[in-house]
Design a protein around this nucleic acid. Structure first.
Length: 390
RNA sequence: GGACAGGUGGGUGAGUGGUUAAAGCCAACAGACUGUAAAUCUGUCACUCCUUGCGAGUUACGAAGGUUCGAAUCCUUCCCUGUCCA
């Protein structure tokens, strides 16, 4: 079911436009995927994501959904799509990021990650195999293998050891995934005529911290898996921005051209075309949604910190160039008021706008690639042409 | 008219002789946020000066006096607020 169709490649930069075909719809790439960790993009409804944003794919998280409400609960209720009433595609992260973000609550061993729940302190062993099982239970369209997202900075030796562990985990996870595929394809339709829904894809994750040789070595080993797509992880963990791009630049060309490339957890709006220029097809990041809730809004004229006093009486729309519901209907002064009043609708309006801004950027990038104009767009963004000076 | 209770920085509210320019919270102002433990977190928040230092000075806890080496804290008088009684 899962298939990546490459439609155009920028001859100058190598930026790609394509389509990801999944059981839950087609996804035009390059794509930005809103993050919906706990079966919800915070402050938004599926209706908002579909009608206002036309998001084609969102993220869910294995660690969080395993702990609450539990993947078996979700399976019983018809899978994650039905559970959260999201008919489109879902990519699930494996919990590898929680190895980084909840580092004080876990212990990494060769077998996997021993997490202590941030909810009740109970202990849970996550293995390459178990995280695949959980993601199968969720019914994810794109599953991620368990990886070790390493902190920055890390020594070359520590990064090498960690990377090799990630590779071993990827092999185990992928073997487990393949086994599941085989079992499922040999399964006959059940008596009531229903079949288990078609299996999602499975992506391994390139690690190697900020060391080019380790990134290359990791990519080479993961290529042997002949996976459906490949991710670049371990970025945006505190390193300088230039390094994140450099590591992407080192890694992406090693990955198969006919398969999608996913850089995990990036980036700022002006960085999106930079990643695409390095051959990246998929990205996700909590910045647009989290920053929205914290009053940091991205616009075509730069960042607006809506809490600043200068917006107190500002009747203008947040971004005059934006056609989202927020910008079409409300003033900056009103948004500022909602923020300070602690009104829930602020989070909704702000998130709606920020995600729309990201998705619009990606749509523009895609159009430029298809029409051979991507280098110009990249140049314009690099010149800060669409951004107001700070 | 009488009896209590009380007046602290923009608000609220700790503090009852000395590490108090005065806790905490709120407001205000500024900032951070990158595969979400986040509707979270951080900083500033009397004024002036400089050699920007856990620096110097000035003003400040209703008002004015007083006690004391030292007072937001103790005493006196006055003003004001609240509750109750006539």
């Amino acid at each position: 079911m899962f298939r990546f169709e490459l439609q155009a490649t920028c001859p100058v930069t190598g930026a790609r436009a394509g389509v990801l075909h999944t059981a839950h719809g087609d996804i035009e790439t390059p794509v930005f995927m809103p993050v919906g960790t706990q079966a919800a993009v915070k402050s938004l409804l599926p209706r908002d994501l579909i009608q206002d944003l036309d998001a084609k794919i969102i993220l869910g998280n294995t660690y969080h959904l395993y702990l609450r409400p539990g993947h078996e609960t979700i399976r019983k209720l018809g899978g994650l799509h039905r559970f959260m009433n999201w008919p489109r595609a879902i990519l699930s992260d494996s919990g590898g990021f929680q190895v980084f973000s909840l580092s004080h609550l876990r212990k990494v061993t060769d077998e996997g990650v021993d997490f202590q729940s941030h909810l009740d302190g109970s202990r849970h062993m996550f293995t390459p195999e178990s995280t695949i099982d959980v993601q199968i239970a969720l019914g994810s369209d794109i599953m991620m293998v368990l990886d070790e997202c390493l902190e920055y900075p890390a020594s070359h030796e520590a990064a090498r050891v960690s990377m090799q562990r990630t590779v071993r985990w990827a092999r185990s996870a992928h073997a487990h995934y393949r086994k599941h595929l085989d079992e499922q394809s040999s399964e006959r339709p059940s008596d009531d005529g229903s079949r288990a829904c078609s299996p999602g894809a499975c992506f391994p994750i390139v690690q190697g911290s900020m060391f080019a040789d380790l990134r290359r070595a990791c990519a080479e080993q993961l290529l042997e898996l002949n996976a459906d797509g490949y991710a670049i992880g371990g970025l945006s963990v505190g390193e300088p921005r230039a390094l994140s791009l450099e590591m992407t630049e080192v890694t992406a060309p090693l990955l198969p051209a006919e398969k999608p490339r996913y850089v995990m957890g990036v980036g700022m709006p002006e960085e999106l075309p930079e990643y695409v220029a390095r051959g990246v097809d998929m990205m996700d990041c909590v910045l647009p949604s989290r920053n929205a809730r914290n009053g940091s809004l991205f616009t075509s004229e730069g960042r607006v910190l809506i809490k600043q006093a200068q917006y107190k009486d500002d009747p203008r729309p947040l971004d005059p160039a934006c056609s989202c519901y927020t910008c079409q209907n409300f003033s900056r002064a009103y948004l500022r008021h909602l923020f300070f009043a602690g009104e829930i609708s602020f989070a909704t309006l702000a998130t709606l706008h920020n995600l729309r801004h990201y998705l619009d950027i990606m749509r523009e990038i895609r159009q430029c690639i298809l029409f051979g104009k991507f280098p110009e767009l990249l140049e314009r963004v690099r010149a800060g042409g669409t951004r107001a000076p700070e």
